[in-house]
Design a protein around this nucleic acid. Sequence first.
DNA 1: TGCATATATGAGCATATACTCATATTATGA
DNA 2: TCATAATATGAGTATATGCTCATATATGCA
Lengths: 99, 99
Amino acid sequence: MSKQHLDEETLFVVSQTFKALSDPTRIRILNLLCEEEYSVNDIADTLNLSQSSVSHQLRFLKNLRLVKFRREGTTLYYSEDDHHVMNLLKQAIEHATHT
Amino acid sequence: MSKQHLDEETLFVVSQTFKALSDPTRIRILNLLCEEEYSVNDIADTLNLSQSSVSHQLRFLKNLRLVKFRREGTTLYYSEDDHHVMNLLKQAIEHATHT
DNA sequence: TGCATATATGAGCATATACTCATATTATGA
DNA sequence: TCATAATATGAGTATATGCTCATATATGCA
C-alpha cells in the first residue's frame, strides 16, 4: 500500500495539497465552498475578509484545481473541484471536533 | 456533518495538523515511521538529512503528538503516535500516485 | 463609448519557517 | 570521573507566505 520511497513529484504534489489546507483562511473558504457555490464578494462578506485577500487565495486554490468557477455577468461563482481533497479536510475537521 | 462555522480552536488544530503534513521533509519522515520505528540517526542516514534537521522536525511532530519515542540507552526510537493523521497522509499519497 | 460593478493583479511589508553551524545535554561504559 | 555516542537546542540566515493598498482588467448597461 504505502511506498518505501517517495519520488520527487509525489512529494511535491502531496506537500502542496496539504499546504493548501494548512492556512486558516483557506480552510474557512473551502469549508464554505464544500456546501455550495459562492461569489468572491460573498465569501469576503461572509468570512469578514478583504476582497483582495479572497481573490488571491482563490487563485492559489484554483491553480491546484481545488476550486473551479462559473461566470454569470461580472460575477464569478466559485465551488469545490476536488472531492478527494475536500474529504481530507472534512475528516480532519471531524477528528478535531471529536477530541 | 460539516459545521457551518468553524471555531477558532478547531481552525487552529486543523491548520496545524495540515501544516505538519505540508513539508516534504516531514512527509518523508512520517512515511518512514508509518512502517516501523527509527532512531534519529537512522532517519538522517536513510533520508540523507542532517541530524540537527531531523531532530528539529521530530520535536515539531512530537509537539503535535504525531510521533512518540522510547529510549534504549542513548538511542531514541521514534514511531507514529496518531493513526488518524497518518491515515490522511496515506490517502493523499495514494491519491497523488494514482493521477 | 462611457460608467459602474465585480474581480484580478502587482508591489511592498511583516511574519513564519526550514535549514546550517556550533554547542549543550543525556546516558553509557571504561 | 572521564570520554564517547546519541540527541537536543539556540542563534543566525535565506526564503516563503499572507496580508494590505493601489491599480488594472473585464463584463454589463445606458
